[in-house]
């Protein structure tokens, strides 16, 4: 657009007629350029976000106030009935519990491992770029492939890789999808496997920014490596840790692919007793399998508010941390 206008706007300036008219035309084009082009630069983002991000989220609320069938359309205004029903739905609370449980089981070990790995990477390792890339490899593998492969490794048969490993140390086979704890563990392993290296690199970046003098003075004080790690390293990178917790929270609350694939056929049910059905699986089930858009939209909104709440809590935490420092 800008190019065309600028090219055509000057009404056939005669080159021979001296600089004046050309300059004026140019100036006008320049003014347009200065005033309008910045908006043209930023507008695509706002259009895309508005149309495909904000509008659907707001519209979700409208849908949630109706009986609404995905295919047959709106079937009548019901006010907050969908929400009332949701808050009396044991499936919702179970999904909430499952989501939080898997989130906790996957996030905390993951971040602890990541800290440890970052600490090891933050040394004079030989071939350091090899190590750094190697820990990132799982993150490149698609979640679907992770889900497919790990679901086979955690298959409920005696001959699956996981049960074979258990048998090596003399333990019996586990029917992984059958129980709450074992299914949550299996799903968490997928999450941990995929994200630990990524978080380790983020911590590594933060650790490298820690002034070395802090370490030196700690060493002079005769602190062991262990104490140095906890008293110097971790406090210095606290904001980064909070950042990773925030990111993991947002991702964790929307966990979908891993449990879906772990569930196999009719994976949206999250196991025979919904023992690993997460909130997003529930959302998917109601939206696209049962085609109950109204109810699904209510789930969306609750999930949305939950994430917002978590974000605010995290934000407050960050504030407190920065003010105490």
């Amino acid at each position: 657009m800008a190019v065309q206008t600028a090219e055509k706007a000057p009404p056939a300036p005669k080159r021979s007629a001296g600089g004046a008219p050309e300059k004026r035309g140019r100036k006008r084009a320049f003014g347009f350029d200065r005033k309008v082009t910045p908006y043209l630069f930023v507008i695509p983002f706002f259009v895309v976000f508005g149309v495909f991000g904000l509008y659907p989220i707001l519209y979700t609320f409208w849908v949630s106030l109706h009986d609404w069938h995905l295919v047959n359309g709106e079937l009548g205004f019901v006010g907050l009935d969908n929400f009332t029903e949701l808050f009396h739905d044991p499936d919702f609370y179970r999904a909430l519990r499952n989501t939080l449980s898997i989130f906790v089981i996957s996030t905390f070990p993951q971040l602890l491992f990541a800290l440890g790995i970052a600490w090891m990477l933050d040394t004079k390792l030989r071939a350091r770029s090899f190590w750094r890339s190697a820990v990132l490899v799982p993150n490149v593998v698609s979640i679907v492939a992770v889900g497919v492969v790990f679901s086979q490794m955690f298959a409920p048969s005696d001959w699956s890789v996981s049960n074979w490993l258990l048998s090596l140390v003399g333990l019996g086979a586990v029917d992984w999808p059958a129980n709450v704890w074992s299914s949550h563990l299996a799903i968490s392993v997928m999450v941990i496997w995929r994200w630990t290296g990524y978080n380790a690199l983020i911590y590594l970046a933060a650790m490298q920014a820690v002034p070395r003098e802090l370490y030196e003075s700690a060493e002079l004080d005769g602190a062991s490596r262990w104490t140095t790690f906890w008293s110097v390293t971790v406090p210095s990178i606290r904001p980064t840790i909070v950042f990773t917790v925030v990111i993991s929270t947002i991702g964790g609350l929307q966990l979908f692919t891993e449990p879906l694939l772990f569930g196999g056929v009719n994976g949206q049910e999250g196991g025979s007793d919904h023992q690993f059905q997460t909130l997003t699986l529930l959302l998917y089930k109601y939206a696209f399998v049962q085609q109950n858009s109204g109810y699904a939209s209510a789930i969306s909104w609750v999930l949305f508010l939950l994430i917002a709440l978590m974000a605010v809590v995290n934000l407050l935490l960050v504030r407190r941390i920065s003010s105490t420092r």
Binding site: P56, I57, Y59, L70, I307
Partner: peptide
């Protein structure tokens, strides 16, 4: 908007 989980608007988006 960086943190807005836009995939939660999936139902209207699909429509």
């Amino acid at each position: 908007t960086v943190m807005v989980p836009t995939q939660l608007g999936i139902v209207p988006l699909y429509m």
